[in-house]
Design a protein around this nucleic acid. Structure first.
Lengths: 345, 345
DNA sequence: CTGAAAGCGCTTACAG
DNA sequence: CTGAAAGCGCTTACAG
């Protein structure tokens, strides 16, 4: 409407003060007479002035933005429930400070590294989220050398000096195993994510140790890439074998959903002949038939905490590792009493 | 490693030229001797110089970034397959120019407006994507007054002066209806999205007109908010009524999946007693049992084209409306011959 | 073809 | 408590 964009100089002129003073008033810096500050603020808002974040970013040497790079195949991403939920939590944390999320989707590890590098070296972001941390993750060293702030989302394998925000999942793993144990399941199978992802191997280890505690037989374990397709393949392998497990624990919901589909297709009744559990935050688990027993992860809160930690780190505050709310076992229809040995075979 | 960040001045000094010339060389502007340009480029890359995008943004008066604001409940978003796929397409288009996507997730219409406004008024983005366009959408007027570039993703109801990128879905609607018609379905029900969303009512209209063409009986129509939960409720309403339809067409995959779950739970066999179809891009439709007949929308390509149009608009190029690839009917197991009237009821 | 300088809109020491 | 000025790292007319 008005023509050109309003600047701090316009506000200053109208208030009869210097631009520096306007800046001080706007940013709540000390050394501005209270009534002068009020007046400046009133004028600025009256004129509808908004800061130019490009200018602010340049003079502060800060982007006031954070980067998230997602390394996923588009098809797999379409069924992924973690990132959308995680992002909504991130958003809630950063938007209240007027900061912003820069999102990038890449489909190769090289591009991923390149994107992290570019985003930080060109000053696009002040810090990044590191998800899907791998064994000896090259990104950790990269970020260190780039001197960028990062928050590790999950469980890194090194005593990283960087802030770490994880989610408490040990309790849920115990509960899930206890649940199946109480239902007389002795022959479990685990469908885990790729071994090189730390949260994938951690998941397996949590389940294994919970089983060991109860003296349960060592389960069969199949590795996947977390996609529904690979979950299907793993399920085939397990169910088409001569002696199939009585329960399959999947490391995420989309694989569990695919597995459920295959079981039913094979004429195996869930849960009377086979129990199935998922893990994650997908809304769809509740609408499947049978509805899926799963472990509900509060990814939104995780995102909120991760973003908060990252902002603190950028501000130079020391960071103690933070842990998001305990994931909770949600028992639904897909798990039930194990079929008795006689009936099977 | 090296200490402070390299600037264009460092490159200029090393090359023995002015910073202006370095800038010209870097940006491929005319008026730099070819060999000087080569030398400057070599030195810059040799030193590992990267542009500071904050500075570039300020001096160009461009953010070199685009905004996408998603208005969704986090739980619903967890099962949404459109945005992740769409975003991957957007990314592919903008990243090759070093541009970036600013993503925002909000959960109210007021916040949505506020976010669009802030993003553009503070110079965070050069343009925005407008998805989920509504009847008399207030965002259209807002963007107009803000003088921001926008690309409308879908079908606006006004002869907007802004670029529009839609997806060709008419053919698929015809095919879907023809498919069911050929299977002797005469009693259809539509589970559509919220009426005030233009693509939701457009979807209904496409289906209706395809049915009309074939002289089919007017279907029952239930409105939802596109969530799996609302899809479930709609399904209950349809299936628990005395006289249920022989086929239900859902406006998106997540509702279809929820509907499929409910049908099976009610002991209704799909597809022998009830046919079901989805619409969208969810990978999960292929792993359900029965697998879902759906219309595959290439959201990634749609995102690519939308981003391309937006960048062109920002660059000042005139825009003809663009249309993404035809969506295609994917026939799977959930649709089959209609039960004969005698067998039913 | 090249240089010197102003400018983008903020922030932040430095004086007073 | 307030002002005048330099600076952030680029880009871009303007001269020559």
């Amino acid at each position: 409407m008005t023509g050109r964009k309003l600047t701090i100089a316009d506000v200053a002129k109208r208030a009869g003060v210097s631009t520096g003073l306007v800046s001080f008033a706007l940013n709540g810096k000390p050394g501005v007479a209270p009534e002068t500050r009020e007046r400046i603020l009133a004028i600025a808002s009256d004129m509808g002035w908004q800061p130019d974040m490009r200018a602010r970013a340049l003079s502060k040497g800060r982007a006031l933005a954070y980067g998230l790079v997602i390394h996923r195949d588009p098809a797999v991403l379409s069924a992924d429930s973690f990132f959308p939920t995680f992002i909504s939590g991130v958003e809630r944390a950063i938007s209240q400070r007027g900061h912003v999320l820069v999102l990038s989707v890449v489909d190769s590890a090289e591009q991923e590294i390149e994107t992290y590098r570019t985003l930080t070296e060109t000053g696009r972001v002040d810090g990044v989220f590191l998800t899907d941390v791998r064994r000896n993750d090259p990104r950790l060293a990269l970020m260190e050398s780039l001197r960028t702030q990062v928050v590790v989302v999950g469980y890194p394998d090194t005593d990283a000096t960087m802030p770490v925000v994880s989610v408490a999942d040990d309790h849920a793993a115990q509960e899930l195993v206890a649940h199946l144990h109480a239902l007389n399941h002795t022959d479990l199978a685990l469908v885990m994510g790729p071994e090189h992802l730390l949260h994938a191997s951690r998941w397996r280890d949590l389940i294994l140790s919970a089983m060991q505690t109860r003296g349960m037989r060592v389960p069969r374990i199949v590795q996947t890439d977390f996609s529904a397709e690979s979950g299907l393949i793993a399920t085939k392998e397990l169910l088409d074998s001569g002696d199939r497990p009585t329960a399959i624990l999947y490391a995420n919901d989309q694989m569990a959903l695919a597995g459920l589909g295959y079981a039913r297709r094979s004429g195996i009744d869930v849960p009377s002949e086979l129990s199935i559990s998922g893990w994650g935050d997908s809304d769809l688990t509740r609408y499947a038939f049978p509805s899926l027993t799963t472990v509900a992860v509060d990814s939104a809160e995780w995102g909120f905490r991760a973003a908060t930690a990252l902002m603190r780190a950028v501000a130079g505050a020391p960071q103690a590792p933070d842990v998001a709310r305990q994931s909770i076992l949600t028992i639904r229809e897909s798990t039930a009493l194990a079929p008795t040995a006689g009936v099977r075979s």
